[in-house]
Design a binder for these strands. Structure first.
Length: 117
DNA sequence: GGTATGACGGACA
DNA sequence: ATGTCCGCCATAC
C-alpha cells in the first residue's frame, strides 16, 4: 500500500453519513485528480477489510456505478436511502444537495491592521 | 520489465 | 442521448 492508497482510505472514511463523494473528488483530495480509476480499484479491493463506507462514493455525474438491477446496485441504493440520501430509481443522486464539501480550514479570523482601513 | 483489468472521466461522433 | 475511444492510475500475474 502506497501513500496514495492509504490517503484514499482515510478520505473515504471521512465522508460523513448522509453525504456522498465522487471518485474524482476523492482522487483530487489525495493529490491525484486523474486517478479516479485507481480509487475505484482500491474501493473494490479494500472496502471489506477496511470497513469503508463504499456506498457513499458515486461517479462524477452522481450516479451509482453498478449495473442497474445488480445486487451491488440494490445494496448501494438501500444503504444510501438508509441514511436519508435520495436516490432516483435509476441510481442518481443530486450532487448539489448531497455531495460532501470538506469544511475549509477556518483560519483565526483577525482584523486587518488600521493601516489598511 | 510488459500486459491486462477495473465501481473512472472527458471528448467526440 | 448513447456508445466508443483514449488517457489516467494502482495492482495482479
Amino acid at each position: 500500500m502506497n501513500e496514495f492508497s492509504t490517503a484514499v482510505i482515510t478520505a473515504i472514511r471521512g465522508i460523513p453519513r448522509g453525504k456522498i463523494a465522487t471518485y474524482k473528488q476523492i482522487a483530487a483530495l489525495c493529490g491525484k485528480p486523474h486517478a479516479g480509476r485507481a480509487v475505484a480499484w482500491i474501493l473494490k479491493s479494500c472496502s471489506e477489510k477496511y470497513e469503508l463506507p463504499w456506498h457513499r462514493v458515486l461517479n462524477a455525474s452522481g450516479k451509482i456505478s453498478f449495473k442497474l438491477r445488480s445486487h451491488s446496485f440494490r445494496l448501494q441504493c438501500a444503504k444510501l436511502r438508509a441514511e436519508r440520501v435520495a436516490v432516483s430509481p435509476g441510481g442518481t443522486v443530486e450532487l448539489e444537495k448531497f455531495q460532501w464539501r470538506k469544511r475549509p480550514r477556518r483560519v483565526k479570523s483577525r482584523r486587518l491592521p488600521k493601516m489598511f482601513s
